[in-house]
Every structure is written in C-alpha cells, then in structure tokens.
Amino acid sequence: MKDYIYITIGTLLFSLSITLFAMPNNLAEGGIVGLSLLLYFSIGLSPALVTFIFNALLLAIGFKLLPRHMVYKSIINVPLLSFFIYLTEGYGQTIEDTLLAAIFAGLLTGVGFGFIFRAGSSTGGTSIIARMLNHRFGWELTGTNFILDSIIVVFGVFIIGPINTMYTIIALYIGKKVTDYVLEGFDAKKAVTIISPKGQEISKLVLEQMTSSATIFDGYGGYTREQREVIYIVVRSHRLFSLKQLIQGVDPHAFVVVHNVKDVSGGTFFVTQHDHPLDPTTVPDFEQKTESKR
C-alpha cells in the first residue's frame, strides 16, 4: 500500500511541475513528457493525450524486458500521469522570471521522481528505458534518465528557442539532484582513511569525543617498507571538520583521504553509546597480536 501512495504523490508532483511551471513558461521536459510538450508548443496537441499514447507503447515493450512487479506499478502510473496532467493543465500561470519557474519545476520533478522510484515504478517514457538499462546492465538510474531526457531537450532549441532550452536543462539538473537526495537521504556521510603510526590514539579519541567508531588495519608502506596503522572511519559530513582537527592534534603528519559515501548501514559507526570503550570487533588489540607473534 505504501508503494502506491508514493506513486500517487510522486505522479501528482511531477504533473504539477509540468502544468504549473513548464507549460505556461515555455519550458520543455525530458523524455516522452518533453516530446509531448514540444508538440503542444508547436501544434497544440494535448500533453495528456500524447503522453498516454507514447507511454503505453513503451510499456508494451517493457512488459517483455522488465520484472513483472515494475511493469504492474507502471501500468498504474502511466494513466495516472496523463490523468493528473489533464486535470491540472489549465491552472498554470506565466512567471516573469523564467529561471524561477525552472528551479521550481526541477524541485517538484525531483521530489516526484524520488517518490516514484522509491516505489519501484517509473514515470513512463525514458524512465522505462532507464529502468530496462538499469535492470539489464546495472546503469545508474537517475544519471541514465538525465542523459536520455537531455537528448529530447536538445531538440527543443528549434521550438522553444535556445534560452528556454537552457532553462530546461537547469530544471533537469535540479531535478536529478533532488531525486538523488530523496532516494539516498539528506544525511550525507564521509568515509575517511587515515594512515598514521598513532592509529590507536586517534581511534580512542574518535570514540570518546565523537561517539563514533573506527576500524584499524595493518598497513605496509611500499616505499618506506615500514608498518603503519590504517584507520577507516565514517562520519556525517557536518562532523568532518571536527575529525580533521582531532587528527591534526594527534598527528599533524597523518595521511588523510576523504571519500564521498552514498549509503551506510549496520555496524557501530553511528551508535550513540558503546558498551565497551574499545570494542574488539572494530579496534583490534595490537598489543595482544604482537605478543602472539613473539
């Protein structure tokens, strides 16, 4: 039931981005919706009708290639999209600042796509193609959809002109970013790799001062031939500066690499309390290892 609520909300938001911001301000869209808007601007065809016809054809093709649960959800979503466009296409008003219209069109589109993708469905058109490429070849979903949409948008230069086409590209980019946030969450995280002879001390301070945990590996320098401790820590982005200060205070010469992280689950990275100050599952006892080697 939750998936169908997401589909309904996402489809409504996407429809509103089309009818409230794109149609009255001569902005196009990507994929089949973009094609329907270009036909609307040029010869006056209803976007609701054109969208339904083309999406139905693509869905018939996707029926043979996509998993059945994706197809069934898209069967609901495709007519729903056309229905919402039909209901709301007369409510849009021209906005003097076209950039503002593009920004809000992108925001609504991004949130709408995020809800729809979370439900395992698609908006039809190039989203169905993106789903097929993602399912068959593992291509990144929103990036593939962005490229396919951009191909359609380029043709808008001949109908809505180069300026409005550039505004449309801005809207698409904003939509992609917002979709990523909805799918992955706003709580961005960073993975930090630290190479230092003072790994135990850094790990202990991270545990005590940042209420986070660390994993320590044995490292070996290819040039120096010296053993080093390699620490791996995941922190929320807003705490990265504090972690760098902590490392700097312990070892100003530590080698630090920061990586972007899309998703983190499990483990003891973000626990609020540790039962054991030095959890042996995340902080190895190097003294005991040294004695055993002897």
Rank of each mutant, 00 (worst) to 15 (best):
G138K: 08
F241C: 01
F158E: 03
I174P: 06
M166R: 02
V261I: 14
N134H: 15
K190R: 15
I247L: 13
G221S: 07
Y173E: 02
L246A: 09
I202L: 13
A254R: 09
K190M: 02
Q209Y: 03
K177D: 03
K189H: 07
Q227C: 02
T165I: 02
R225E: 15
V234K: 10
Q227I: 01
H238C: 00
L246N: 07
V264Q: 06
K177Q: 13
E208I: 07
Y220M: 09
G222I: 00
F137M: 11
N260D: 15
Y167K: 07
F241W: 13
I160H: 05
R136F: 04
G219D: 00
D251C: 11
I160T: 07
N134Y: 06
S237I: 11
F186P: 02
K177E: 09
I147G: 08
V250S: 11
H135K: 11
D251I: 03
S196Q: 06
L141S: 01
Q209R: 14
I170M: 13
I216T: 09
V261W: 07
A188C: 03
V250A: 10
F146N: 05
L246S: 08
G175A: 04
H135R: 05
L133C: 08
H253D: 14
A171I: 02
E208Y: 05
H135G: 05
A171Q: 07
Y181P: 00
M166H: 03
V258P: 06
A191T: 12
D149F: 05
K177H: 05
E140N: 14
H253T: 10
G222V: 01
F186H: 02
F146A: 06
I170G: 06
S237H: 12
G143D: 13
D218M: 06
T142F: 05
I231G: 10
S212A: 15
I233A: 11
F137L: 14
G221T: 03
K262M: 07
V230D: 04
Q248H: 15
I231W: 04
T224I: 02
V154G: 10
V235C: 10
F217I: 01
V257P: 02
S242P: 02
V234N: 08
V264C: 10
I195C: 04
G138W: 09
T179H: 06
S212I: 00
E208H: 13
G175E: 03
V250E: 08
D251W: 04
G156C: 07
A191S: 15
I247S: 14
T215I: 04
D263Y: 12
G199H: 04
E140G: 09
E140Q: 15
F255K: 10
L133E: 07
I160Y: 01
K244D: 08
A214K: 09
G199V: 01
S150M: 13
E226Y: 05
V206I: 15
T211F: 11
F155W: 00
M166S: 13
G249C: 02
H238S: 12
K244Q: 15
R225S: 14
I174D: 06
S212D: 00
L141Y: 04
T168D: 05
E229A: 12
V235A: 11
N134V: 00
F241I: 10
V178Q: 05
K244G: 04
V182A: 04
V192K: 09
F146C: 03
S265N: 04
F186M: 13
